[in-house]
């Protein structure tokens, strides 16, 4: 498989030095070119898992392989898009997109490449603006262009549209789907929105919480474009909702118990 996640455990010590298991024996394989969503309630460790694939966080035990290479540190083969755009405010839009290219190509080539990817996210006319002059949705598109510009094998997305309004989010879903079809990148997409995961992905990994585990692995067979298959989407959404309800109840019960004990 293209991405192999093997027996990942993540335990950290909380303030009282009590071990807290964030992720428990996670096993996952992702094919090349697949669009996979990792779906789960907050606190299930889905962002931690993504951050491990990126090489930004170490696992307590277990290994992750991307294209048969073990992940030990971040690398340009894995582009990451965060919930906040994380653009550098001192660089303009095209300089931001060129940031990962600085060392491997001339400025002209970099600029050419930046233009190409800015066109892909439909921001060609904004190349010379600074991040603070853009809306949240535009910033996030620049951030996607920046990740794509370094031509990664995998695009890791950590709730990239979570901070955007509904209309913008829906438009960006369309754009992302098109980018995925055009570039054939493998995408691992972390989200807590069931409908978002159904709309976009080939496969949905549903995670449970405390500790974070994989509950189910759902293959989404609904043909694209999915807007035309609203009933199938609604059925699947209901199904996943039922599954997650138990998890969310578990969190609520725990919180209530904690409140009662303190």
């Amino acid at each position: 498989m293209f991405i192999d996640i093997k027996e990942i455990n993540k335990i950290y010590m909380d303030q009282d030095q009590k071990p807290n298991t964030v992720l428990k024996s996670i096993n996952l394989s992702i094919r090349k070119g697949e669009f996979v969503s990792i779906l789960g309630p907050s606190g299930c460790g889905k962002s931690t898992l993504l951050s491990m694939i990126a090489g930004l966080t170490d696992a307590t035990s277990g290994d992750i392989f991307v294209d048969s290479k073990k992940v030990v540190k971040p690398g340009k083969d894995r582009g990451m898009v965060f919930q906040e755009a994380a653009l550098f405010p001192w660089l303009n839009v095209s300089e931001n997109v060129m940031f990962p290219l600085r060392k491997e190509m001339s400025k002209e080539e970099g600029l050419e490449r930046a233009r190409h990817f800015l066109a892909m996210v439909q921001l060609s006319n904004y190349a010379n603006l600074y991040p603070h002059e853009l809306s949240g949705g535009m910033q996030q598109r620049v951030s996607i262009a920046r990740s794509l510009a370094m031509d990664p094998a995998v695009l890791l997305m950590d709730e990239p549209f979570g901070a955007l309004d509904e209309q913008t989010r829906s438009r960006l879903h369309g754009q992302l789907e098109k980018i995925w079809t055009d570039t054939k990148k493998t995408i691992v997409f972390v989200t807590h929105s069931i409908s978002e995961s159904i709309k976009l992905s080939d496969r949905i990994i549903v995670m449970g919480t405390r500790p974070g585990t994989v509950l189910t692995d759902i293959k989404v067979d609904i043909p694209r474009p999915r807007e035309e298959h609203k009933t199938e989407m609604a059925v699947l959404e209901e199904e996943i909702m039922e599954l997650l309800k138990k998890e969310i109840d578990k969190v609520v019960d725990e919180e209530l118990a904690y409140e009662a004990s303190s």
């Binding site: 090489g55 971040p74 690398g75 990451m80 906040e84 994380a86 550098f88 990962p100 890791l156």
Partner: peptide, 21 residues
Amino acid sequence: PLYIRAARTMGSSGIDLFMKV
């Protein structure tokens, strides 16, 4: 810290990370 994380995923580290980010 988000800037640093983002820069690291773009292959920046050490002195380059310090000077450029």
